[in-house]
Design a protein around this nucleic acid. Structure first.
Lengths: 193, 193
DNA sequence: AGATGACTGACGAACGTTCGTTAGTTGGAG
DNA sequence: CTCCAACTAACGAACGTTCGTCAGTCATCT
């Protein structure tokens, strides 16, 4: 499907150069056509960008939801650490998560409102699910905690910091160190008072 | 000084729109002149951008170093929590840290190498100082730890996640919750085994 | 026959940049 | 004190290029 080829190329250039820095001619050249021909498949640059964005969002959402559906009540250490590894994996396997990250943090100004709404959507959903899991773990005394919200937000903080490291710590070794450090301290911090 | 006015305007637009999205005409208009006149003060867009970048880097460096020079051996809780508050303060008081964050994570492609070097510079320096402090705290048993590197990296992770929240959690309330959550878990994780 | 998808050609607008030219200021030299 | 030279800071005009977009054409395939 040509549409998907175009979206792949667009994803690549939007990720590297951002919305303003990526040009339709680059994208078209990547798939071997002229930029004007893109208009047979998309209404314009914004349309292409938003479709790529929604695909990326949906992919991230699906991956995370699927992984979290495998959580049980008794192995928070395995499940949470696995979640961090999943994020790293998603990040390295395809560009969608990196694109999503860049776009949600620094959206093109004229689309900021629309994008902000989508970001809040998915974030609220993930946080809600996670918080319910944490509540279970606290109830079963698998971890320590007075409210579920504190470990949830702290964990999401770790996810954020790991994603940032993925962006700018190109060094694989350093990423591993950081992950282990964050995880060690986090787990020590939630596993007992 | 007109040069500083220009740099202020440039900082503003580079922060909002990024390198590619900010135009010299916008910047010039902000200070009440034509874009051609900018060339009396800067060699070009790259020159202006890099000068703004180095100013931002130096400002961040200076603020953090000054704050850390006030650390002592016996109050890690006060000093580290204060450091997080400092970051929030810097972020909200001027745009330089936000600009620095955006640029170091998503630099314009043709300047990526030069910028990457500057990022590594400052990061290495901050981490080194912090790690020595953590070593002191471990030695004086103010905190628990086997090596200084683990709490250092974990703390830097929290700094990263707080900065990210500053970028996209426009909600003040949510930021405070996140800070408290991260800090609570972190401190519990490093204050005893 | 009709629809699809790519093409060519052209559009106005904006980009960063360079040029030559003005004022206005400053600093010595005569 | 004056005069001239150098410098500063802004300007309009234009450069060549690229941008996103639209219109019309032509081959392919159902």
């Amino acid at each position: 499907m040509k549409v998907d080829e175009i979206k792949d190329a667009a994803l690549k250039f939007f990720t590297i150069h951002g919305y303003e820095g990526a040009s339709l001619s680059q994208i078209a050249e990547e798939v071997g056509m002229k930029k004007q021909s893109l208009y047979a498949h998309f209404k314009g640059k914004d349309d292409l960008f938003l479709q790529v964005l929604r695909d990326a969002k949906e992919a991230e959402r699906a991956s995370k939801l699927e992984y979290m559906s495998g959580f049980d009540e008794h192995h928070p250490e395995r499940d949470l650490y696995g979640f961090l590894r999943l994020v790293i994996d998603l990040f390295q396997k395809n560009e969608q998560l990196k694109f999503w990250l860049r776009t949600s943090f620094f959206p093109p100004a004229h689309l900021a409102d629309a994008i902000g709404q989508e970001v809040v959507d998915i974030e609220t959903e993930i946080q809600g699910i996670l918080e319910r899991k944490f509540k279970d773990w606290i109830d079963t005394k698998a971890i320590y905690g007075e409210s579920a919200k504190t470990p949830t937000l702290a964990f999401l903080g770790i996810v954020d910091s790991i994603m940032l490291s993925l962006v700018y710590d190109n060094d694989e070794q350093r990423l591993e160190e950081k992950l282990e450090a964050c995880w060690t301290v986090f787990w020590r911090g939630i596993s007992h008072p």
